[in-house]
Each structure stands twice: as structure tokens, then as C-alpha cells.
Design a protein around this nucleic acid. Structure first.
Lengths: 347, 347
DNA sequence: CTGTTAGCGCCTTCAA
DNA sequence: TTGAAGGCGCTAACAG
């Protein structure tokens, strides 16, 4: 086929992969490089006959375009930088899912960095990812070093700061108001008749959004002339075990608390487990309230009362908004993806 | 400082970011481009004075290297392609964690693709990621289309197929034998005196590894002259809710089953919830056994009996092995990351 | 220790 | 409808 022309004459670098280049495909198809390039990108007019010949050559050689070269020659790299603090906490993989869903078949690929809730690490990652000349950048939260902020600002590309909307973004923020969510938690529980509030939380240094919810809750209680009876804080990341242990500790100190607000569903699930194991009746003896609306909470023997944040939606929306417009607009934008109170059976 | 030299004279393309280039830094520092390049990469000998001057220029300009250009000019892109079937199932984020951990400060970045358990989608992803000329490729499982396998093979880069080791890899496999794990599950439970086995599973089309475990279990039972009394299969992805519902259904049909093996911990956790809600005594009335060894299982009111696979280790090991050697060796390698039976309290 | 030359593989701009 | 020339930003290989 194709006359079996020998394309071996060209001097080939002996480098990685020794992959087929546009030039080789062009030679085999007996057209110029640019014609092959045009056909592969569906750009500009091409004769059907030429297209067929070229596609055959592409097939025959097993050509895979080099996007490094493509990105360098044209403007965009076709990469999206994504920075999350953790993959352990299920909420971030869910944001990633949303990002992948929105990116599907766009020809763009996410390059993911994980900070481990460390702002220094984040700074290095931003620098590293910016070196790929990404089309855009998605980053969790507003907690950046001054230099990180400068780099993002100077990059000129679109920046989505996701998860929260309680601060002013560089470009666009997508998420929910954690402070308001905390406030609404308090109001909801007060309306349901609870008065003696406890709180079980995890490390705030790492998770500033948990702190915002706490602040909102405290503000709400204060507004109603109430306050937290007691709180138990775990010095580490949130986990089911931590929630279980901390609730045990809190109830040992304050047996007459009637509702405990947890920093998130993982912790709250642990609280539910403690109650089951210790034969404490949920809601009657003590009520439990979480945050996130994870699937696991709804599968518990008694469905967890909580607030559903929309992680998938956050990821998807961030990408959608960013792709709408390639250049960064003048003012900042805030997109509120909202939240809903999930009634459940534990509060 | 630096005499405030004007670097504006150079014609600048008005393209994306209009970012600072090596040439500009070089001009400002009054050295050649290659010198700046060397300094930034710590390659070759450089006078301390020059280094200082160059670093100052880098600072002053806010230079960010362009890795597209760097990758094109040198051999490696500095990208690692990673393909997973899902981010919903927590095991894959855990593998990603291992990958990120091993990549930390290596200067390599993962580019992640998600297939949704779809081999067509996987094929597109492999093609797309290969276009970035990745240094290596990590991909979950052995289930690829013929073309996918050809592309991976032809790429010449190192390929790690992770999660399982029950088939022959293209280059290197890192994971555990799911068939053997299933077999050992059977043996362990038989040793503990269980005889009337039930099985609760999820969609096998998507999750072939669950199928392998099932086959191993069945083989073990057969070897002991036993068989599954009954099984309940959920037509969809694994989830806690599904496990809960399916166990309810199974026990309604077969009240005298004494142990139920679940396709994984998510499903098994649902099973535990069903028992708690229905006041079925775990182990006495019915025993439950999972697979994965997730944290959630160990935080349950009764810790789940299960098998711990080592997802983090799988991800980390895959990267470590791959980075050991840049060229793909002749023969295939298999790395068994093993598993342990977690005794727990449900079986 | 530093610079020169010559690409990497592709795409943009112009011309035919 | 196709092609030629030049360059994207960087680095390898050799000089000096």
C-alpha cells in the first residue's frame, strides 16, 4: 500500500521513543508537513483525496502528535493546572471528578498537584504548574502565600479559586459560603428546639473552611443568646475514628449536651458509630449534625443530618466558567454553588 | 539595581501571558541564554558571581521557565501519564496519593485521566496522554483494547499496569493477586468454621478485579466440597447503600446463611449497617467479610473483617520502579505488594 | 567557566 | 487547495 515507500532515509534522533514525526507522515503521504497538520486539526480547506492519503499515512506510521511541540508553536498548551490540598479527604476527588467531567473531550488535560495543606508546598506547585503554561488554573481555597498570589496574578491566565466564596478572589471563586453554612446550621438546630450545643472538630490550621463554619455557628448562637457548652478538638486531620473518640470524650465531660455539631461528615459518622456502640439513642439522647452530605452519611443505619455541599458541581462549574472566556476579565467573579440542609434522622 | 537596564526593546509576541523568556533574563544579566539555563538547572560549572547576577535577573523579571520548550529541546517532558477508571471509588485516589508521594520533588508532574471503566474512553485517553510524550505511564488494570495495548507498546516509555498481577504486563505490573485474595478469603472463613456462604457483589463488567476475587473464592469453596448458597448482585457500581440493600435481599431469601462475603468494603459496610438497623447480631447471626481494608471499616461500631490491599503502596511502588530505569527492559516484571487479612469483629 | 550553533516538532504567516 | 520560510523557548554538543 502507498507504494511501500521507504521513509527510513531521514536522519532520526535516537532520542526517547524515537517517535514518528509530522515530517515522516508528510513524506509518506507525499504532501507538505503543514498539510498534514491542517488535516489533523481540521483547519483550512483540504481536498478529500489528500485527506484520505494523509490519514492512511497516519495510520500506517502510527503517528502520535507531539503536543509539547504543538503547544510551543501555537499559543495554548492544552493543560489545566489543578491544585488540591489532599486526596485523602473524599471531597477533593469529587471536585476532580467535576473537573474531569467538564473537561471531557475538550482536548484539555488536567495536571494535578497535591499540597498536603502546606502553603509552601502550594507555592512550589504553583510555580511548577505555571511552567507548563497552563490554559487555566484551578486551586482550592484562598489561603496562599503572598508570592503564590503574585505568581497567579502575573501569569495572566484564568484562575479559579474553589470551595469557598468568603474572600475576594484573584479572578473567579466557585463554592459556597462556609460561614453562612455554619450560621444556618445553628439556626436550623435552634428552630428544632436544641439549646445545649457541643462541637467536635479537627485541626483548623489545615482546614480553614471548618473554622469558618465554626465561626458562623458561634455567631448564630451568640445572636440567640446561646453559646457552645463545650467542644472537643482533634489535633489532626478529620477522620471517622477521630470523630468517634472525640464525641466519647465530649460526652464524658458534658453528659447533658443535647446536640453536637461536627466539623464534617467524616467526623460526624464517627460520632454516630460511638452512639451505636455505646447504646446512646440518636436524637433522643443526643443529636448529631455534620457537613458535606457524603454518601456514607446517608447509608448509615440512621441517615445523618447534615448540609450538602456540591463538590462535583464546584469542579464542573469552575471549568465551565473558566472556559467561557480565555482572557482574565477586569473584575472578580463569585459563583455560589450553594448548599442544602439534609434533614436526616440524627438531628 | 542592575543598572535598571531597559529590556523593553525586544519585540515581544503578544501571545498568551506574554511571559518573560530566557533571552530576556539573559539580556538583563548580561550573559548568554545557555548560562541562565545552566544555572537554573544546576548543570555545569558556574561562577558564583554570575549565578548571583542571573538569579537577581530572574527575580527582577519574575521569570517562569517554559517546560513545553524545555521538554521539546531536551528529551523528557517531565510528565507522567496516569489513567484510572474512577475517582468515586476511594481506592484510586489512594493510588494517586502514592503516586504523588513518590513523585514529590522529582520535578515530574502527573497528568491524570479518568476512564469511567470504559475501554473506549481509555483508548482515547492513552492516545491523548501519549501526545504529551510522558516519561512513563501508569494505568489501572490489564483490560485494554487491542489498539490501546499497541499504542502503549509502541510508545517505548515505561508502562506500569497497577492494582492486579493476575495477567502478563506489557512492562511492569504492581499490585496483588485478586484471585489469590479471594481464595484466601474462603480458606480463612472455612478455618473459622463457616460453611454456608453467601456473596453480595456489584457490577462485574466494570470491576473485573471483583470478579477475580469471586472466582478465587468459588475455587476455594469447591476445593472444600462447598459452594455458595446464594448470591445477590447489584447492577451498578459498588456503594454502601447497594451493600445494605443487597444484604437485606439475600437474607430474606436465605435466612440460614452464616457468612456473607462482599465484593468490597463499601458494600460490606452497607451490610453492617443493615445488620445494625435490623438488629441482626454480627458474627453470631451472620458474619460479614469485605475487601480493601478501608479506614471506614475499622471505625465501624464493630470493626470490619476484611483484607487490606495496599493502595498507597501500589502507587508509590509503581513510580519508584518506573523511575529506576528510563528505558523499558526486555522482560516483564511483576511486583506483588501483597495483602493482609484483617481479623476485625464481623467474621 | 562561558558562548556559539543548530536544532527539538509543530504552527503561523504569507505566498502561490 | 497547497507550500515555503521562519520562529515558538529552550537545550545538547561542541568550542573557546
Amino acid at each position: 500500500m502507498l507504494g511501500g515507500r521507504n521513509i527510513g532515509g531521514r536522519k532520526r534522533s535516537s532520542r526517547q521513543g524515537a517517535s514518528v514525526t509530522l515530517a515522516e507522515v508528510a513524506e509518506l503521504a507525499e504532501v507538505s508537513e503543514i498539510t498534514v497538520s491542517r488535516i489533523l486539526r481540521n483547519k483550512g480547506p483540504v481536498a478529500e483525496a489528500t485527506r484520505k492519503r494523509v490519514m492512511a499515512a497516519v495510520e500506517a506510521t502510527g503517528y502520535v502528535p507531539n503536543r509539547l511541540a504543538g503547544g510551543l508553536a501555537s499559543a495554548g498548551s492544552g493543560l489545566i493546572g489543578v491544585i488540591v490540598p489532599s486526596l485523602t479527604n473524599i471531597v477533593f476527588p469529587e471536585v476532580l471528578r467535576g473537573i474531569h467531567a467538564a473537561l471531557d473531550r475538550s482536548g484539555l488535560q488536567p495536571v494535578v498537584g497535591v499540597t498536603g495543606y502546606d502553603m509552601e508546598a502550594e507555592e512550589h506547585l504553583v510555580e511548577a504548574l505555571l511552567a507548563w503554561k497552563p490554559q487555566a488554573m484551578v486551586i482550592a481555597g484562598f489561603d496562599h502565600t503572598e508570592r503564590t498570589r503574585r505568581m497567579l496574578q502575573a501569569s495572566g491566565v484564568r484562575i479559579a479559586e474553589v470551595m469557598e466564596i468568603d474572600s475576594k478572589p484573584i479572578d473567579i471563586a466557585v463554592g459556597l459560603s462556609h460561614r453562612q453554612a455554619g450560621f444556618d446550621t445553628g439556626r436550623h438546630l435552634i428552630e428544632r428546639g436544641y439549646r445545649r450545643f457541643g462541637y467536635v472538630g479537627h485541626d483548623w490550621c489545615a482546614d480553614r473552611r471548618a473554622r469558618l463554619r465554626y465561626d458562623g455557628l458561634a455567631a448564630c448562637l451568640a445572636e440567640h443568646g446561646l453559646g457552645l457548652v463545650d467542644e472537643a478538638l482533634f489535633e489532626g486531620p478529620s477522620s471517622t475514628i477521630a470523630g468517634r473518640d472525640m464525641l466519647a470524650r465530649l460526652l464524658a465531660r458534658q453528659p447533658d449536651i443535647d446536640v453536637v455539631v461536627f466539623s464534617n461528615d467524616d467526623m460526624a459518622t464517627g460520632g454516630v458509630f460511638h452512639c451505636i456502640a455505646a447504646s446512646i439513642r440518636l436524637k433522643e439522647d443526643v443529636a448529631i449534625f455534620g457537613f458535606n452530605g457524603l454518601d456514607i452519611g446517608q447509608a448509615l443505619p440512621v441517615p445523618l443530618s447534615t448540609i450538602r455541599s456540591n463538590r462535583f458541581l464546584i469542579g464542573r462549574t469552575a471549568i465551565e466558567r473558566i472556559l467561557e472566556r480565555h482572557e482574565r476579565p477586569e473584575g472578580a467573579t463569585i459563583v455560589d454553588t450553594g448548599y442544602e440542609i439534609v434533614i436526616g434522622g440524627t438531628a
